[in-house]
Design a protein around this nucleic acid. Structure first.
Lengths: 342, 342
DNA sequence: CTGAAAGCGCTTACAG
DNA sequence: CTGAAAGCGCTTACAG
């Protein structure tokens, strides 16, 4: 640890500095810089030049103190590792547009105490609003305490229906997947998915069952195969299904990782994908789906769009719009693991 | 669009409100709340109760304006999608400790213009410092313009050696991988990796070559197999190597995705991993490495730790510490794809 | 068109 | 131990 000489601390230039250099009052300098009020154009130019020369950047804290608006929002996520938050977060950032708004990122790590701390800190910083990103689709308790600014919940809805929640239609997603397989001419369809404790798993299974029923078909094995979201379960369940129900000609998987496991087992069994059997995943996770053999068709939940909408809703709410929730459908991204039967 | 009645805007309670309720001056209220100066304890209690009652949260903008310190830092990343930024970002957040510091997140999307905009905005908000996270290890140009606050570059070092850069030792990582394979008794080792245009690919290959040379061994094929970072390249290159150099008994892969492709091809060829041939990946990307068949041994670059160190360095620099860079070694995470020869 | 003054919410010497 | 006053950097009526 070296002892530093006492360097005079750097002081960013202030409006006063600019005004002095331009030979006007701070009031006039302020008006010139903000393009407000009647300022003679020659004066304006002089002020602008002075500002440029000093690399003047108006102090946003001072502005915020005056206006009551800071142009900042807080983004509360419960799992940064989880890949769901990231696209949502990008979308929300995009929605904030051309640098008008800055985003505070806070990761609560799924801990309610930490979440409360973060909210407290953000409120102290006078954010104009809050976006809360969940990591699973189960409804979550609304933010504790009275929050004096608008809040938008994304992916995981708030348990309070009066709150603004922007979510994914998982029932619709399950339906979409089955309809695609049906459109490919498949009739004996199984469903392997994650833990039944997840709303997402239950919703997708419900949509799948409904679509199958609408076509007058039963699910292979007569029920979804609930397990876990990973490859091992995909492998194990596929093994079981292929042995017990060799007539199976399509498998809808609740995640792309499950689908990777399924693909591997089908390969072991010598079942040709997509000719003998079609496989469709869920999430459209590039790293998992885009380079498998064959490349994986999957349901994409448009998470980035979800984030954008959440951002837009938040800004609207800040400007006084009435709260309203919305649920978005996914879409099929076709690759080579599904194919219309010739 | 409904026209809202003009509700009186919510006004957060101020120190003045607290002081009034407690029957003291704002000065005294301030001291009581900050535990500063001599305040009679009965007075302090009265003020604290009033603050509690009003849910008073001190306005951080006003404080920042006074002190010149905002307790905020800007986090500039160039690829949020890229999974490298995320652990680093978590580490940096952790380093900011118990809610003293809030982090502005900005994604420049690899665009220099956007980066400049973000820096400008952050400077306007008077951040105390900046962390710049790159997505590849190639040195990057330092932030444009004069930045009046400390800056720490993470993962991608600044091209200016006078800047603070916290990076990963990829040469060492390559060495580590080879040394592990040697320790497992392997002698015919090949290296399949990503694009030669990446510094990371070149560094890892250099470390691998050096470790092999130190053991008096040559690389199988006499050179690294540069290609791309994905599974397809892993499959193709492994195919080539196994056919041309059947004596190969280990493959060091420049990424876990390459390793997954390699694993698949070895399976096709009926080569037993790890008994007949060992495979080691790079990145230790859970989703890719943790559930393959067999599960993949990999080099972990401790990215989260990198982020923590970056945060600590930044706070130190803000407090006047001299700038200094640091490079961190990775570590082997053993799973089942490598095994000591019996 | 220009500028002096008040004030946003807070903290910090300085009197009392 | 307590409080009046000044001031952080800015904007906004209000005079001139």
């Amino acid at each position: 640890m070296t002892t530093e000489p006492d360097v005079p601390a750097y002081r960013p230039p202030t409006l006063t500095d600019v005004a002095k250099l331009a030979g006007v009052s701070v009031a006039t300098a302020s008006k010139a810089i903000n393009g407000r009020g009647e300022v003679r154009s020659s004066t304006r130019v002089r002020v602008l030049e002075a500002a440029e020369l000093l690399s003047f950047a108006p102090n946003a804290l001072a502005r915020g103190l005056l206006s009551g608006r800071t142009g900042t929002v807080g983004l509360l996520t419960s799992d940064l590792e989880g890949r769901f938050s990231i696209p949502i977060l990008m979308g929300a950032e995009d929605a904030s547009g051309a640098g008008q708004v800055s985003v505070f990122l806070c990761d609560a790590r799924g801990d309610a105490i930490r979440e409360k701390h973060h909210v407290q800190a953000l409120l102290s910083r006078r954010v104009d609003g809050l976006i809360v990103v969940g990591s699973r689709t189960d409804p979550r308790p609304p933010l504790a305490g009275t929050i004096p600014v608008p809040v938008v919940y994304v992916y995981a809805p708030s348990a309070d229906p009066a709150d603004i929640s922007i979510t994914v239609d998982n029932v619709g997603g399950g339906r979409l997947a089955i309809e695609h397989l049906l459109a490919c001419g498949r009739r004996s369809i199984a469903h392997i998915t994650g833990e039944a404790g997840f709303q997402a798993a239950r919703d997708r299974a419900e949509g799948a069952a409904a679509a199958l029923a609408a076509a007058g078909l039963a699910m292979v094995g007569d029920r979804p195969y609930f397990g876990s979201w990973d490859e091992s379960w995909g492998r194990a369940a596929a093994h079981m299904i292929v042995e017990q129900h060799p007539e199976v000609d399509a498998i809808f998987c609740g995640s792309d990782q499950i689908a990777r496991g399924v693909l591997e087992t089908l390969r072991d069994f010598g079942r040709d994908v997509p000719r003998s059997i079609s496989v469709i995943g869920f999430d459209n996770w590039e790293a998992i789906a885009a380079d498998s053999r064959p490349r994986l068709t999957s349901i994409d939940m448009n998470l980035k769009h979800l984030g954008e909408v959440a951002g837009q809703r938040l800004f609207a709410a800040i400007d006084g719009a009435a709260p309203s929730s919305e649920e978005f459908p996914g879409r099929v991204v076709m690759r080579e693991s599904t194919l219309p039967v010739g």
